[in-house]
Amino acid sequence: MSKKRSHTVDDLERSLASGELFPVYLLVGEEQFLRHRGRNLIHDAVVNERGGTVSIFNADDPLEGVLREVRGDSLFAARRMVELMEADAFLKQHGDALVRYLERPSASAVLVIDATKVDGRTRLPGVVRSIGMLIECPSLYEEKLPPWVRREVSRRGRKISGAAVSLLVDEVGSNLFALSTEIDKLITYLGERERIEPTDVAQLTGHTRSWIIWTLTDALGRRDVKAALRILEDLLREGSRPEALVGMLNWQITRLWRGRCLLDKGGTRRDVAAELRVGGKFLGALMEQIGQFTQDHLARISRMLLEADVALKSTMASEKMVLERFLVEACGATSVAGRRNG
């Protein structure tokens, strides 16, 4: 592997998979999840794949103990991993001593240094780059979270829709440990299914009423009547007003129809963004939903929404029954003609 100034955890994974193993790794950055993953990858390479041992030290441990461990010979293991955890204070006090060790490192030891920050004015970063890997683990900005979620789902052999990515990030936030945990739960929940949908996220992570409209329109686009009815049940149980749901659905369907018409006339993703005044993670989710509908389907749903709104205000039928009938028909389970002639 070429000696770049710094690497990512993905670079580390590829390096280890190729069989490389260096005498030192410096995992540095504010994102604990990435540092944790990096340590686990190195642990697997040293302990699980090569039958090595592991010793763990923290910032309060004496320098002599760390040096004794990295310099010592193992009688029973070909390799030994020495982890120096949360090492910021340790490096400030003993960084020069570690540099002196790394000038002539042990051939059987792998020193893994875990730190939030490292002083770039010291010799340590340069020495690590020359004989090992410096892996940056920064906190991810908001725009980096959706690609990260998609990669994590792909690592687990599954797929996830754009709308589901947006909903998951919106609900869970930027904590990668929490996001990873929710992804694991979603994978288990999927069973044999391959793709995570917004309805899955809503079921497992909890949901806000503003975002649940995405899940409802997504279910309509996929003509998934069971999912649509399940979402409706959740919303009504949480106290959502039926007329408010109709209003929000109508707002979203109108936006989808405008986007669909624009694309059918030869417009681009940028045109849709400008027309609907949407960008960032929301644009990707919106474009995916637009792709699920034709103009005719959206026009049909819009007419049904109007009829449902009238029924809510003027009939004695239960509000839940009116909305359930709308969802069943909008998903295509019952034809409009059949309902009108029945």
Rank of each mutant, 00 (worst) to 15 (best):
R158D: 13
E192I: 02
I131L: 09
S6T: 10
R129W: 05
L216C: 07
E20K: 09
Q93D: 10
T122K: 07
T254A: 13
A97F: 11
T116P: 05
G51F: 04
G266W: 00
P242T: 14
V110C: 08
T217H: 02
A163W: 03
A59D: 01
R339W: 15
V118P: 04
L190C: 12
L140V: 13
S318D: 15
I290V: 11
L276T: 04
Q32R: 12
A337R: 12
V118Q: 00
V47L: 10
Y189H: 15
G291L: 00
N48P: 02
I196K: 04
G173W: 10
V165L: 13
I183F: 02
L27A: 04
A178C: 09
V99L: 09
N48I: 13
R37W: 08
Q289K: 00
G284L: 01
V153G: 06
W214G: 03
G29W: 06
A77R: 00
D200R: 00
A78C: 05
E142C: 11
A308Y: 01
D60F: 01
G29L: 12
H94Y: 13
L12W: 02
Q93A: 14
L323W: 02
R155Q: 12
M287W: 00
A163M: 03
G338M: 06
E103A: 15
L286Q: 02
S74G: 06
G95K: 14
D73L: 07
E143P: 07
Q295W: 10
G247W: 12
G239F: 13
E275F: 11
E64G: 07
W148C: 10
L26F: 08
C331Q: 04
K265G: 13
T205E: 01
N175A: 06
A78V: 07
R35Q: 15
A273V: 05
R121L: 06
E152A: 10
V169G: 05
L179M: 08
E69R: 14
A227R: 06
I187H: 00
A115W: 06
S18H: 13
G65Q: 14
L21S: 07
R193M: 07
L84Y: 01
L235K: 05
E324C: 12
H36A: 05
F326Y: 05
A97L: 11
E182V: 11
G120F: 11
T294Q: 03
P147C: 08
S18F: 01
L124E: 07
E83Y: 03
K4L: 06
I213D: 00
I231A: 01
L306M: 11
W148M: 10
A299G: 10
W251Q: 08
E171C: 05
E86Y: 01
I160T: 11
D264Y: 00
Y101P: 10
F90W: 04
G126Q: 10
K159Q: 12
R325E: 15
I135M: 05
G247E: 13
T254E: 11
L249V: 03
Q289N: 06
A285W: 05
D11E: 09
G19D: 08
E31M: 11
R255T: 08
A109L: 09
S314T: 15
D234H: 04
D296C: 00
E288I: 09
D73R: 11
L91S: 04
D218V: 01
Q292Y: 05
R123M: 09
S161I: 06
L84C: 09
R14S: 15
V149I: 15
M287S: 02
R303L: 14
G332I: 03
M304K: 06
A78N: 01
G72A: 08
R269W: 09
